[in-house]
Amino acid sequence: MNSSEAIRLTVDGITKFDPVFTKPDEITYTVLESPVLTRLMRLRIGEPSPAKLHPDATTSEFEPCFAADGSAYAFIQSRANLNMKLVIRETATGKDAIFDPGGGFAAVRRPSLHPRGERVVFALPAPTGQEIVSVAKDGKDRKTLSAGGINNWPAYSPDGKRIAFCSSRLGDLDLWVMNADGSEARRVVKLDGMQARPAWSPDGSRLAFTWNRDGRYSIHAARLDGSGLVRLAEGWDRSDYASWHPDGKSIIFVGERGGKSDLYRVATA
């Protein structure tokens, strides 16, 4: 399967973000439902239309992430103007734990759940720059993992031992990997143009990520040593927000074509 064989999963063209497989045949993503509201949606592949994940939500919710064992999921919830909190929801009970960044203009973004739901890692602005921070599943035990420069888009590896992220500590936003405790951070690859939103392959051997290559956001993948760089999605005005299928044979992403944003699925091999 190449880009010409990509499968278009949605057709409404409206703005979408953050798709992620929650089951082999199910995707959760964020949609810009109205000018003032983002909403989490769930799409079963093959069904004609998505369903609202939280039908009663009245404030913007976005950036969902799920523990691989299904024990919990997390998302960002807008609480007030320029103020966003992290919600960690226990799947079985619906019980929420909250990480509150404080009042005023304060927010967290881009959470990623440990595969067993033990911790959540996310981006948190700080006087030293934008940090990668983790908290336990109860929203407590905050630990700073990466500081200095702008750090963003952390993603736990499938085994929970490492975290991929992007950092400007050496100048521009590059792709990095570190141990889950923040140690041994290293740049994966040096490329011209911003890299963003890394996503681990299920076997932990590759990272898919968005690369602003020659003025166009497109999804590429590389091994952890930076080798094997390959473009996974080609032919869109913008391809972004990659997420691997659990079988590792395809990714889903948001593709912008003709000014419209939809979800697509394309093979990785």
Binding site: P35, V36, L37, S60, S78, A80, N81, A107
Partner: peptide, 8 residues
């Protein structure tokens, strides 16, 4: 505000 619905 349509581009940043994160701020209601």
């Amino acid at each position: 505000q349509y581009v940043e619905a994160v701020t209601p």
